[in-house]
Amino acid sequence: MTIQLSHYLLLSAVLFSIGAAGVLTRKNLIVIFMALELMMNAVNLSFVAVARYMGDAAGQLIVFFVICVAAAEVAVGLAILIALWRHKGSMHIDTLAAMKW
């Protein structure tokens, strides 16, 4: 059996779905945050696989940019979580209901 593009894309879809399941079913904000990172990695994997398939290095550069944006997102996201902890003393997602209609 040789490895084909579709195998990488299927693996990426599975990882993305696992991340989505984590976001939908967990209540701990930190764990939701990590599941989000997992989804981003799944998309990166499919970018790299398609870049290899097309023989185009631009796909790898997009992943480079996505990693930069993810690093920025982590810094700001964790800052928001710490501020939330300071104000509410909880990491439960239901404490984030100030903007709920």
């Binding site: 040789t2 490895i3 084909q4 593009l5 579709s6 990488y8 894309l9 696989a49 290899r52 398939y53």
Partner: peptide, 9 residues
């Protein structure tokens, strides 16, 4: 449904 079956390595 995709037909992209190029062998990778």
């Amino acid at each position: 449904a995709s037909t992209a079956v190029l062998v990778l390595g």
